[in-house]
Amino acid sequence: MQKKYCIPTIFVPLLLLSGASQAEMEWGEWILDPSLQWQYQDNLNYSAYDEDELSDNLLQLEIVAGRILQLTDFTRASFTVGVQTSFYQDYDDLNNSSVTAGVSVQHKFGTGPEKPWVRPELFYTYANYSDSIRSDSLLQGGTADLRTGDTLTVGVMAGKRVNDRLDINASVHYHDRDGKSGPVIVPGISADVFDQQGWTLGLNGNYLLTSSWLLSAGYKYYNGDMDSSCTPDNVGKVFENATVNAITLDNVFGGCVYRLDGRANMLSLDLGYAIGQHSSLNLGVSYQAGSADDLDYSNTSVQASYMYSY
């Protein structure tokens, strides 16, 4: 937990840069960004075995509100609070609501649209699930919403407009998720499946197809904890092929869920259509391929969204 106390130091270099400018600090524009998203995932449970992959549709409503504090001519801080609620069509035990508080400080290195920028950011999310283990005997009288808990994400983004049509950005984020404990089902192995940490490196490019159509392509590399579901039939194979760091019962997919240390490559493609100046319709697809020891995982998702920005 010591690392959490170090996180605000990521803002220090920018705050020092900010002091070099003359403009007075002043509150700027308000942020109000509602969005509605539909998503389909073909391997919702992130199973390593094709025959056990489960798919579902998800509807997600999010509202982010906040305000920008202009620190100097070239530096601005953004304070936001977001509320998100998600509804699954079949696996409604995954329905959840979350609140996210975020702060970021963006510094632009000079004047002009093509000047690079850097943005350290910090987010704290509390998500509430209703995925309780309902077997009182296994929990010895208690219940646990395994996935309920908080996540701290800290990272840095940097970007640059390359030309009139293309802008690119790169990012690195670290997340630390603290979930709830389920019942211990394998002696000597933790049941804290949703206590997870991981690093994500990202590259993203946005390319204007026309003045109204924007094509975005992204690549992410993830290294850290991953969770996957298992069944009584395949849990043995899981243990044969990978080092399982945590395992417990899972009510959502009717078997067990486990955590292991893995890596994943993710590709995404989004097409956005501007509706006026403040809103857009977006269609996207993403593919994720992960591995941990001798197990391979993949998930494809398709999403459509409406986004509004005040």
Binding site: D33, L214, D270, G272
Partner: peptide, 18 residues
Amino acid sequence: KKRWVPFRAPAAGGSSYR
């Protein structure tokens, strides 16, 4: 010729603004 200005509307792929 076509003239380009940065996309103002929110984008699913993220934005440099904010």
